[in-house]
Design a protein around this nucleic acid. Sequence first.
DNA 1: CCCTGATTCGC
DNA 2: GCGAATCAGG
Length: 232
Amino acid sequence: MSWTDERIDRLKAMWSEGKTASQIADELGGVSRNAVIGKAHRLGLDSRPSPVKPGDEKGAAPAPAAAPPAAEPRPAPSKVKERPAIAAILEAAAPMPEDEPRPAPAAPAPAAAAPGKPETNLVYRSIGPGGFIRQGPGEQQAPIPPAPPRRLVPAKPSPEIADKTSLLELNDRICKWPIGHPGEPDFHFCGQQANPGYPYCVQHCGVAYQAQLPRRDRRPPPPLPYGGPRVR
DNA sequence: CCCTGATTCGC
DNA sequence: GCGAATCAGG
């Protein structure tokens, strides 16, 4: 597999959505997690919290009196990873200056919502059975770093069709909107009268067909063929 | 062990 | 440019 423009776009999108490299690799298919990470870096996508990158490092506060070891050149190719003795000494010698101006603990934490600013525009776009979120074409990264609190709900069919509509009962006149997840005991379909010409009822058409933003080259919409997060 | 992302380096 | 191998933290 090669990195076509299309695949690169998808990579960028998913990367900025916060998908893990593994997820992205899975959805793109044909590439490994490493390939995704490698590509992301080559593209200059912003790096994400990595377990191995604490952020800052030494240099910010060198040991007070101790020595500036002046970047010891990597010595022998020995397999020794660190020398515990040295590490311990450095650690002990650096009693953490901590002269930073601490914010007063009494400072109120208004958190997300500033008083004068009512949340103007929510960016939730849609949550279909796949539960995906769309945003304007211009917006590159999701303004929702914390995972959206979406959670699929039991979603009962209306009382009139309390008896579940099974796969075998589907025809082109009834809504085929899936309720639940395939394989689960109560998985069934909406079963309402379908919106003529569409596979779903009016309500579910409203969910399934979002107003398409003016987009010249249409991107394949959701990476999720079906499914969404399983609710357990 | 599993997961994660970062980096290296031969191709 | 690509990505497997490797590293290293959670």
